[in-house]
Design a protein around this nucleic acid. Structure first.
Lengths: 335, 335
DNA sequence: CTGAAAGCGCTTACAG
DNA sequence: CTGAAAGCGCTTACAG
């Protein structure tokens, strides 16, 4: 490949087929007004030249880019990668291309990503916000994972409260009375809802709610922050006998902390987690956790956006909550 | 958000600022020919209107989209997700947007993705091929992970041969003489090179090369196919005492197989793997493996593409091999 | 059934 | 230093 070849244009095709540009355009889009014979001629010409229509020009003319932007904190996190795939499946099926942008959880980058997408005239945006969102009336936005109450043409998140309630009551069922929590800062809805539900669930079980049993990791829910939080719990005079972690990443860190202290799961401390870790079966011990359904989450977010396109963004914004399901393994003490 | 607002255009800004469209355009791009006062007026007007330039129109006019396409088998696989992030960092820094496309390892979808990218007039493509690649002279392509000899303006892959050689000689150092291999079909370069290197390394160590010790998983390197391959090895009359797996995904399956048969790693069979599994420390047992450097892989691929842009695609295509590094844990028998 | 013309929103010679 | 004009490659009323 020594040099870059010229992309043939519609004018090239028209010339080759001996018709006008308008007729060539219609023929390729299978307009009923064009005679079958002309269509054949134009299509043959297009094939011969290897014509590939210029989407940029079409988008400019039709004022619709067929692009949808998707903004996630970190595509390298399995959770978001799978949500992206789910959304992509639905949107590509509907003729849209997905522009994926990472924010590294920085509000500033999120705002910048939103601007970039706007300048590409995306038809819509799927956003898992890290806090940098300002509602815009120039493009419909569907929020997922972390919601912004009152914003967007739709929202999709997991049933955070129900999920944590299930985890807590499973531990209560095992007879635990001293239950700790390794969570995330309550600045975004998923962190907030899981924390609040933990407190509510413990209270609902008739257990006393000890503030020293609640430890929060960092804003990126990192394993290392989970490790630190768990270390703090284990160092208490009367440490909890069971712990709920708010994510698989926090659980990874928590497991390390238990191991580093020479304790065993579930014998010394039981552990259950939000988010089912990938290959959770191979971990030592296998972790009891809430099943992943992030692919469905992406699909749903995409569907809500498509729905907004159709209804012209006038309907009441839907807020969908995805149910969660408990996968029982050994870390809770079962088996 | 009841309705979608109109995007202000450059004409709107020009009118607001009381200048011509050409002057407005120049002012916003900081052209030296425009007087400072006019620049200020135009910029203020743009800010007041919330003007966001239409990239589509600019791309059409300048015949450069500032888009780079990136085609991967599966974004939900950590390996590719991190490569994407690495590439994205480099490319966004250079003013390009990255369009990520999944192929699910289907050659047909890969070809389709390539077409879609061409019609969006991407300036270049980063491709981890699954076999559907046809070289095009319309856009520069950098191949990564799986290479196509003689194609592309550049190539980046890991040092597959050296990596497998390191794994084999580590096992030989442990005294193993019956070494098995759980690999992938040799249809793409990474599968082929790792397989070939295994055979060469075993021979180089003076061990006899038994064909029944070489088992291949499926084309997607799936854990389940690794499990099957390992089961076959364990069922042999004289099973290998150590096994090399060609990827972390295959290793996951292999570990399951060993466990299902009631055997232990490394006591009954030692295991080392290409690709360092994420949170490999938490697996039981912790897996000795070759370190991940996929982020660097993506960065390098992107750099090669940028380089091709600059040199006008005339230079000899570079083929870069990323070195690998052994992370010693317990599955090999060390400690 | 087909074509000439206008226009999407920019950039960029060209003229002044 | 500024503006009028042409053109990037399409689509789509409008006329015939």
């Amino acid at each position: 490949m020594a040099t870059i070849a010229h992309h043939p244009t519609l004018a090239d095709v028209a010339r080759e087929a001996g018709v006008s540009v308008s007729t060539a355009s219609r023929a390729l889009r299978d307009d009923a007004a064009v005679s079958p014979m002309t269509k054949r001629r134009v299509r043959d010409a297009a094939r011969r030249l290897g014509y590939e229509p210029n989407k940029l020009a079409r988008s400019l003319r039709t004022r619709s880019s067929s692009f949808v932007g998707m903004i996630v904190p970190d595509i390298a996190i399995g959770f978001y990668a799978r949500a992206v795939k789910g959304a992509q499946d639905v949107l590509e099926q509907a003729g849209y291309q997905v522009l994926v942008m990472n924010t590294e959880r920085e509000a500033g980058r999120e705002l910048q990503a939103l601007r970039t997408l706007l300048s590409h005239r995306v038809d819509g945006v799927l956003l898992a916000t890290s806090g940098g969102f300002e509602d815009s009336d120039r493009v419909p936005v569907v929020l997922f994972d972390n919601l912004v109450p009152g914003s967007g043409v739709g929202s999709v998140a997991r049933a955070n409260r129900e999920g944590v309630a299930i985890l807590v009551s499973h531990l209560v069922g095992h007879g635990h009375e001293r239950i700790g929590f390794v969570g995330a800062p309550p600045i975004l809805t998923s962190g907030f809802e899981r924390l609040e539900s933990f407190q509510a669930s413990v209270a609902a079980a008739g257990l006393s709610l000890r503030s020293e049993y609640v430890r929060l990791g960092d804003e990126s829910w990192s394993p290392s922050s989970g490790e630190r939080a768990m270390r703090e719990l284990l160092a208490l005079d009367e440490p909890p006998t069971a712990v709920v972690t708010a994510s698989d990443t926090l659980a990874f860190g928590a497991i390390e902390a238990v191991r580093a202290r020479g304790r065993r799961i579930p014998d010394d401390v039981a552990l259950v987690s939000f988010d089912d870790p990938l290959f959770g079966d191979l971990l030592e011990p296998p972790v009891t956790a809430l099943a992943r359904n992030e692919r469905e989450l992406g699909e749903l977010a995409a569907s809500l956006l498509l729905h907004a396109f159709q209804t012209g963004v006038r309907a009441t914004p839907a807020e969908v909550r995805l149910p969660v399901e408990l996968i029982v393994r050994r870390s809770c003490g079962c088996l």
